[in-house]
């Protein structure tokens, strides 16, 4: 019965993007692998601008957006603004080098953050929670 249901439902799609012009890929590789192993479909768009992220999220019809931060919070805020402007109601979570202060600022905007040392189990659990009901 369970198996049958899985076959009928396509996996939830997660878009993973890097907000900065910083190509360190270790974090996104490890997180992307864990999410894939947990059954998600992963769309990688690399070092993408706000507009490119919004377009990819629309085109791919994703259920969740994961932002790999390597820079300042203003760049992430621009992405959130453009998502809102496009009336894209997709949840966003973020990982990477995010200071405790910026984690709080993002939490106020409803963004869960996963700074270095976060457990992959917690990241996968968050992805499952945030995509619940979307597939």
């Amino acid at each position: 019965m369970q198996k049958n249901m899985e076959e009928q439902t396509p996996p939830a799609k997660i878009l993973l993007a890097k907000t900065a012009l910083d190509g360190h890929w270790r974090g996104i590789n490890v997180v992307g692998r864990a999410l894939r192993d947990a059954g998600f479909e992963i769309i990688l768009v690399g070092m993408a601008q706000a507009e490119e992220i919004v377009n990819a999220a629309l085109t791919e019809d994703v259920d969740l957006i994961g932002l790999n931060m390597g820079g300042r919070i203003e760049v992430v805020e621009r992405i959130l603004e453009q998502l809102a402007a496009a009336e894209l109601d997709v949840p966003v979570f973020a990982g990477g080098t995010i200071s405790p202060k910026n984690c709080r600022l993002l939490a106020e905007k409803g963004i869960e953050t996963f700074p270095p040392g976060s457990s992959l189990h917690d990241i996968v659990a968050a992805a499952e929670r945030l995509t619940k009901g979307t597939f």
Binding site: T19, A50, G71, V75
Partner: peptide
């Protein structure tokens, strides 16, 4: 590419 995330410059 730099203008699009200009706040990051100098970080």
């Amino acid at each position: 590419e730099v203008v699009a995330r200009h706040e990051d410059v100098g970080l």
